[in-house]
Design a protein around this nucleic acid. Structure first.
Length: 764
DNA sequence: CCGGAACGCC
């Protein structure tokens, strides 16, 4: 029996042997070997079963058992049956049988049984140790076991090394990994292709690609796996996609026959590079080589087409696949937010069980589309299927509930986890920050840093919370700043722009400018942060100076940059400049004006009394004007006494869902000023009848009582003198106002008034 | 025993 793949003839031969009363187990073992690694493995098991049903117990030996266990391929049902047979036939203490049993239970996910068998072995060989080593789930446990092997005097073989290395690469066990590398070199095993491949893969996972490349270049004998390892290493980060592609071209040049893994890695690199043309070519190449219908090649083609904004083509690939696995469905769910929920239903009809990644994609989709009810249902399904404690799923749940403004639910999901990585903390901190719960965000941040090392995302969120909160001491911001420098995160463009934004929002323009000038790169975002800060402060001069400098440095402004500049123009009455910039934004920069831009323009034109132009601008708004636009227009009509246009605006406002008392008040005043008393009183009456209450504006201040560390919330509204310290507060406010005026008069820079405000906070 | 595909935090 030399045939590598079972042919019909071979199978007939086996059948003949099955019918003869054989004493020697050799033919049976040969049959097993024939099916080993073939897609028809289950046949081997069938043969074994029927053999057994014929009651030929005596005709098996340890090889038969070992081969049959292999044929089980991790099936726990048949595995345990054969386990029983190995015990009754007295073959189980044989080391190869025991090793195969351990291997089977590892594959079946029943590691404790493997361990149990191992501990009962009198004399385990290296294979036994290696088998157990490979079965651990947590890297820490595996590496601990490797230490035990070492102290028991087990000599590491190539399998031990490759297994241990794979644990190091999964969990960034740098110390252990490097130690293994050096002892591999000492024992001369670095020439083994398998070991070299594992080393390459480890360095790739650690994103130490130059080290991986050095290993690859120095390898005495490379195989296809070596090429695959280095190519997928380059494609994974998404940064070195071009290198991956050029390595792929090299394999073709050398006449290496690519397999599905090589194609998967290369197509994925095309996706990261958004290189649609090359992706298409390799798609064609895969079809020619017969990998067109391979599931993992198909999966990566779906994601590549989607990354290149060709969702239709992605769908086409998906619909043409012969076999769709959980990754295929999950990819479709992740790239197709609108259809995510229906795809999920379809997936279940296709009998593909979802995994935790599926839920991450689904939760993300419902989060983006604000599907609160669907989100809760999916959360329920997560709980039922036991994915809710999966860290990534939990992160998505936290983010989802934060988006739904249920930060309590976010916190509950967070509390469920007992081991939290920085990402989980980040999700909660950012959830609080986005819901305006700055205090909670900062408190969570302070707890986080006692347990894990913060990263750039952590600071991005906490700095935005500090920037947005008026009731949080800037001390927190400065402490973050020093931590950022200590951790070396100040070179991160996102962190540095969050920092300057935080200082800018809190009025410390001096600090902002310093962060800006020290930033590693000046991005669109950092320029825009500076400009919008100056805009908030009404510093027209600085807005225009910075804006012009931004343009001079060839940094393209975005819609937010324009919004800040236009707002400033409006406030300062620079109507012509504003109009010119608005037109330039649309024509030169191809930025579609948002409702905010229109609102800003209507406001600008209205304030200047150019009401016809304002009206014309209102009519340009796609989908009609929103609340704020009409309110602003109505306000201008009231100022300039334009009843006709005012009525139009009021009409639009009264048709809206949310009734605002401002509309009634403005219209009543407008009519009153024109002497149209009847109409005026009609509006006032309507306001009372429709129960629209005039909302009172409150300012809230959290006062930090330094002595006992407690916080108390104080509220203020216009004309209200009920606060026990009202006199003192008004006195101080007046004092602060005078001091500000004084400082302004002396042309002191804005940043110093920021410092001054902080010192007032201390006196308080 | 080594290589591949989908996802989470600014």
């Amino acid at each position: 029996m030399i045939a590598r793949q079972p042919t019909l003839k071979a199978i007939q031969l086996i059948a003949e042997q099955r019918s003869t009363a054989v004493v020697n187990p050799q033919p049976l073992n040969n049959a097993h070997q024939l099916f080993d690694k073939s897609p028809h493995r289950a046949w081997a098991l069938q043969i074994f079963r029927s053999h057994f049903q014929l009651g030929r117990r005596g005709t098996i030996n340890e090889v038969t058992i070992t081969l049959s266990l292999k044929a089980c391929n991790g099936d726990p049902f048949w595995g345990s049956q054969i386990h029983g047979i190995s015990v009754t036939s007295g073959l189980w203490p044989c080391i190869t049988v025991a090793n195969s049993l351990m291997n089977l239970y590892c594959k079946a996910g029943d590691f404790s049984k493997s361990l149990c068998i191992f501990e009962r072995l009198a004399d385990p060989d290296t294979v036994s140790w290696n088998t157990v080593l490979s079965g651990f789930r947590r890297s820490e446990d595996a590496l601990c076991f490797a230490c035990r092997m070492n102290s028991n005097g087990v000599v590491f073989d190539p399998v031990t090394y490759t297994t241990a290395l794979s644990f190091c690469s999964r969990n960034e066990e740098f110390h252990f990994g490097l130690q293994l590398h050096s002892s591999i070199v000492k024992s001369g095993l670095d020439c083994e292709t398998f070991v070299g491949n594992a080393l390459i893969s480890m360095y790739c996972r650690w994103e130490r690609l130059s080290e991986a490349r050095r290993m690859f270049d120095e390898m005495p004998s490379k195989d296809l796996v070596s090429w695959n390892a280095i190519i997928s290493g380059y494609s994974q980060g998404g940064i070195q996609g071009l290198e991956a592609i050029s390595m792929f071209i090299e394999t073709i040049r050398r006449g290496i026959d690519p397999d599905h893994v090589l194609l998967t890695g290369t197509v994925s690199a095309c996706g990261h590079e958004k290189n649609l043309e090359l992706g298409r070519q390799i798609h064609g190449f895969s079809l020619k080589r017969g990998y067109g219908k391979h599931v993992s090649v198909g999966n990566v083609l779906i994601s590549t087409y989607s990354k290149c904004d060709r969702v239709e083509e992605a769908v086409l690939v998906f619909r043409n696949m012969n076999e769709r696995n959980v990754v295929s469905w999950t990819t479709m769910i992740s790239i197709n937010e609108e259809a995510a929920v229906s795809l999920f239903d379809e997936m279940r009809l296709d009998n593909v069980p979802p995994n935790h990644v599926t839920f991450v994609g689904l939760l993300h989709a419902v989060t983006v589309h604000d599907l609160v009810e669907q989100g809760k249902k999916i959360h329920g399904a997560c709980l039922k299927l036991g994915f809710s404690l999966e860290p990534n799923v939990c992160n998505s749940l936290i983010t989802m509930y934060a988006k739904f403004k249920s930060t309590d639910e976010s916190k509950r999901a967070f509390d469920e986890l007992d081991h939290r990585e920085i990402i989980t903390w980040n999700a909660l901190i950012s959830g609080y920050a986005q819901n305006g719960l700055s205090q909670a965000a900062i408190q969570t941040f302070l707890s986080a840093v006692t347990e894990v090392k913060p990263n750039q995302y952590t600071f991005g969120s906490v700095l935005s919370a500090i920037g947005a909160a008026e009731d949080v001491s800037l001390r927190h911001g400065k402490r973050c700043h020093s931590q950022i420098i200590k951790l070396g995160l100040n070179t991160d463009p996102v962190v540095s722009s969050a920092l300057l934004d935080m200082y800018a929002k809190r009025g410390s323009m001096f600090e902002s400018e310093r962060v800006f000038s020290e930033a590693p790169q000046r991005t669109q975002v950092s320029w825009t942060s500076m400009i919008s800060a100056y805009s908030r402060h009404g510093d027209y001069q600085s807005v225009m100076t910075w804006f012009n400098q931004m343009l001079a440095e060839q940094v393209e402004p975005d819609s937010i940059t324009f919004l800040s500049v236009l707002t400033t123009c409006g406030r300062k009455g620079m109507i012509d400049t504003g109009r010119k910039l608005f037109d330039s934004m649309v024509q030169d920069y191809r930025i579609e004006p948002s409702p905010e831009h229109y609102s800003c323009m209507v406001d600008m034109l209205g304030r200047a009394g150019r009401l016809e132009e304002a009206e014309e601008m209102v009519n340009r708004i796609p989908g009609g004007p929103g609340l704020s636009v009409l309110q602003s227009l109505l306000g201008s009509c009231r100022t300039y006494g334009n009843v006709e246009l005012g009525e139009k605006a009021a009409e639009g406002l009264l048709e809206m869902e949310q009734k605002d008392s401002g509309t009634y008040v403005l219209m009543a005043n407008l009519y009153a000023e024109k002497g149209q008393w009847e109409k005026a009183s009609r509006f006032k009456r309507a306001m009372r009848e429709e129960g629209v209450l005039k909302k009172i504006g409150f300012s809230w201040v959290d006062v930090d009582h330094a002595a006992d560390g407690s916080l108390a919330l104080h509220g203020f509204s216009s004309g209200d003198m009920t606060h026990p310290m009202a006199e003192e507060i008004h006195g101080l406010a007046e004092f602060v106002g005078l001091e500000m005026k004084f400082l302004r008069e002396r042309e002191v820079e804005w940043y110093e008034s920021g410092v001054m405000l902080e010192s007032v906070g201390c006196i308080w």
